[in-house]
């Protein structure tokens, strides 16, 4: 049998395999480069980058819950300038495509960061994290109103020459509407899901466990929600989809692809096992061999 072909095409960005670490769960790659060569990965997705440095929330910022974990990091990052000079310059020597996750408080901040990332010529794509509170709209997230989302994507698309992926928030009534809004705004692809908003209370202290009170839920427990949302989005858009949410094994990744995803991102699983991504790549390969699949296109969206 032919060797299975794991390459995927994300709006012109060709990846040697469909597996990438999810934003915020892999730093800028340095830490995991001690465990394996980053070029093993389809791409590296870095932490959210903002115009100015963000300090993030008070601690505790993370806690394990049944089925996953909650985090309220608060998009802590050293800001655009340092990310480019200290992190992307290094990462660009690792022979792996780079996707920069961009966040902001205003449309203008998103545009400035995305434009600068495109102009620095170190990154291969931008992923817009639209789960941030919009300062102008009283702190409601950009990712929950289709009109606000479409406008934002349009504005960023105008100034950013790189492939633009929009990372959707699952905390919405209709994921299909949001996916379509991103597509109409000119997105080259969508990625989903970001974390679901959750909370845990320490009943002895009668206080929330996280200093921020609420936080984002990720991990195995969110996978059925995530697969369902990829499936619903895939039904209504024609741009490529990157699926994520609770992927821990190759089988999980295959499930997302069958729901319509072209590629996948792996977040929380990196914490459980730093070798999660390379292991998942091997397991996908094995599944393809066992099932005589030569190209991932054969299974993509097969349940739609």
């Amino acid at each position: 049998m032919n060797k299975p072909d794991l390459t995927v095409d994300l709006a012109g960005l060709v990846l040697k395999n469909p597996v990438m670490p999810a934003s915020g769960c892999f730093g800028y790659g340095r830490e995991y480069a001690q465990y394996y060569a980053l070029e093993t990965l389809g791409a590296v997705v870095v932490k959210a980058t903002t115009l100015e440095p963000w300090l993030g929330n008070a601690t505790p910022r993370v806690t394990e819950v049944r089925g996953g974990m909650l985090n309220a990091i608060g998009l802590a990052n050293p800001g655009l300038q340092k990310v480019v000079q200290e992190e992307l310059v290094w990462l660009s020597t690792q022979n792996v495509p780079i996707i920069v996750n961009v966040a902001g408080r205003t449309e203008d901040e998103y545009c400035q960061v995305s434009e600068a990332i495109a102009n620095c010529e170190l990154a291969h794509a931008v992923e817009l994290n639209v789960s941030c509170p919009n300062v102008k709209c009283g702190g409601i997230s950009f990712g929950v109103d289709p009109h606000v989302l479409q406008d934002l994507v349009q504005m960023v698309k105008r100034v950013c020459a790189l492939p633009l992926f929009v990372k959707l928030s699952p905390n919405v009534t209709s994921i299909g509407d949001m996916a379509q809004a991103a597509e109409q705004g000119g997105a080259d692809g969508i990625s989903l899901i970001n974390t679901l908003i959750g909370m845990e209370i320490n009943i002895h202290r009668r206080k929330p466990v996280l200093a921020n009170g609420i936080g984002g839920l990720s991990g195995p427990g969110i996978k059925p929600v995530a697969v369902r949302m990829v499936y619903q989005a895939a039904k209504v858009v024609s741009i490529p989809i990157i699926g994520m949410g609770g992927i821990f094994t190759g089988a999980d990744a295959i499930e997302f692809m069958m729901a319509g995803a072209t590629a996948v991102m792996v977040g929380t699983a990196n914490f459980t096992d730093p070798y999660a991504c390379p292991t998942i790549i091997d397991q996908i390969k094995e599944f393809m061999v066992d099932n005589a699949i030569t190209s991932l296109a054969e299974i993509r969206g097969c349940v739609l």
Partner: peptide, 23 residues
């Protein structure tokens, strides 16, 4: 502090430094 990755990748376990530089 409560940790997630334990290797420096997630910024879950920060403490603040006296000189108010990055955590």
């Amino acid at each position: 502090e409560r940790m997630a990755c334990g290797v420096g990748a997630c910024y879950g376990c920060v403490c603040s430094s006296e000189n108010k530089q990055a955590a």
